[in-house]
Design a protein around this nucleic acid. Sequence first.
DNA 1: GGTGCATCCTTACC
DNA 2: ACAGGTAAGGATGCACC
Length: 807
Amino acid sequence: MQTNFIPIDYDYFDFQGKNYIKIIGRTDTGKRICVIDDFQGSFWAILKNNFGKEKINKLITKIEKIKIYEAGRESKVEKVELHDKNFLGKPVKALKIFVTNFKDAHRIADKLGYKEIFKRREYDLDLITKYIMEKKIIPFKLYEVSGQVLNNSQEFGWIDSSMDIDLCIKAEKIKQLKKEIKSKEIPFKPKVLAYDIEVDDLKIGGGEILMVSLVSNKIKKVISLKKSNQKFVEHAKDEADLLNKFIKEVKAQNPDFLVGYYSDGFDLPYLKARAEKNKIKLALGIDNTSVKFSRGRNLTAKISGIVHIDLLRFIKTAYAQYLQSETLSLNEVANELLGERKKDFEIKHSKSLGEDEWLAFHEYNLQDSILTYKLFQKMWPDMLEFSRIMQTPIFTVSRNGMSKNVESYVIHNLEKFNEIVEKRPVHEEISKRRLRPKYEGAFVLQPKPGLYENLAMFDFTSMYASVIVSYNLSLSTHLNGDKFSKQRGFFPKMLEQIINYRKKFKIELKKNPNPMVKARSNAYKLLANAAYGYQGFFGARYYCLEAAAATAALAKKSILDVIEKIKKQGYHVVYSDTDSIALLLKNKTKSQTLTFLKQLNKNLPGIMELDLEDFYKRGIWVTKRTGDFGAKKKYALINHKGKVKIRGFETVRRDWCRLARNLQNKIIRMVLKEGNEKHAVEYLKDITKKLKNREIDKKLLIIKTQLKKPLDEYKAISPHVVAARRMIEKSMPVDMGMLIEYFVAETRSKKALVRDKVKLVGEKGEYNIKYYLNRQILPAVENILQVFDINTKELIEGKKQMKLGEF
DNA sequence: GGTGCATCCTTACC
DNA sequence: ACAGGTAAGGATGCACC
């Protein structure tokens, strides 16, 4: 039997003490297939120099005899091979040691205390990684498998009949099909089922599940404890019935992906806990196994044969830094990425829901799954490309952070360099690394405050990555101190390849815009940007603080050199931060400036590249609030099309109240558009008057601050901590990571601290005029108007001066 | 009990 | 613990008078 298929999910199992790989995929005709592949795991023993053939053979004989009995099984060295390999760029002789069961690789490696052995490596990789590395069966690429069909076969203990699949093949040969998948097409349309639950008690398993919604391209339904004549609602007579109906529906849909939003941390653990309570097995796996959880920093929920995706995890690594949303809630993210929102519904305890409210609740629940489904579709190209490029199953790659993604990419591209994989740092090593002093980072130029006209912004493309490539900075090329070898290392070479791919797909995207090429280009961009952080990250296999420090230092030197050249050419440099430079054109034209930019590029080292980010009509830089010199990381620009770019100002900070943010935003825009402060001052006066007359909507005065750690770990009791404590008193849910909302109210108390005036949003009380005037509005506009020599304090307080702290 | 510096804390920039 | 350093700025903590 022979068929084409795409690998989606990977797993392995033991049979008679040996490991077998189990790949779940789809055939090119859409059938769900399970491919079972024989795979013997192995690790490396790298030999010290200068051992003759005879000595090596003796060693091999000794190693071949190693056997261990542990965890109720016998494992032994099955085979030893001598290879010429590279380790950290240097040629070595190494023994490839094959073991019966790879789970015992570490224990067997521990038995290799021979003086001839320099290092033992790759026993700390997982078997799936080893398999993909060696056999190159990469997720979502097309393969042709031939072998024996298992149909009610007793092979592997009737494994095929234990799974809900269309076809099971014991592989004899798996061959990659060279058929190039056209980048325009998405090669395979996954079957997706999105889900979401509603409960009264947010504590995992703390109360009954009221309803669960399920959405695919075929169904839109809510299974609910509440009877309803809404067409999409299926009634469950009790929670056990609800759970069974849920399981049955998932099985009926038979999806490739079961998708939730924060479902690793909430929906699936909740379902599992309630299933246990009802003595029901949450047997969602295609082999009828239950959901499995693994604890890391985050809870992770795995279902055998169906890829469980928690969209929030992927959003955090691949999207968060490019999103404007202030939180990563489903509502905000869906609004930004899809232009759709959750249904308006004020959640309250199910006991107090009226009949109409149940209808709305059902719709609300359904909408969450609809949004989750649509978000998945939107992100699918990105996840697919991540999986293919990192050569890592989508279950894993969608949960990994960027450092792990860089590492996966490196590990799976090492074979081109004949390299053995370096080990993961263990606990002591990590602690040691974390104690190392920080190195000096980027250069930030102190700006001179003012309103400027006719500017350009230059920036280096993927600056740190191109520094790493241009100066060959990595662990394997590190000699000593700040010295690095001239001989090109695998890490910089791989990174250069990444940058080249990024360029190639960016160009392709311009010619032919489509989501797949965009996703590919973006994945390479994210990889390039994370490479620097990776080398400085204490958990990295290829950690090299010297390389990270040198990268930062050489980047700094490069930008300072360029700034000098720009000045010499007669431009005025206003500002610079890390990889960008803002300059005044003065008497120069745009085209002269572009010519000059080309000239600058000719003299840059290696692959470094300086780009024009944009030309700007005006820009404003302000003073720091403390001191009369320019504030870094705070500026605003307007380009010639009228597009405004605001950085660092309170406008973009979520821990300032809306009133102050909106006011500052308007004032910045007025000033940039008009080039003077006239309208801005009028607008400020108007808002001030309204605030003093208590005409401002309290919604605009809410301050939101995130609880970054458990409440009892705070040393300083700040306003948001007080607010959170009050919430607990009122038995409102308070969790680490939550945005705490409060406003500052008028109080009779003479205490001066803000925290003594904190009130929760729902609480009665009038807003504190002096606080919002002196600590929100004034600080937000003061330094902007100061550029025009306006004393804002006098303006809004009248002639009578007031101390800043007073309110 | 007010002053002023240190420290904590959050959130931004790149 | 899950990429790095640089920076602004609010609010409290606390020694000091």
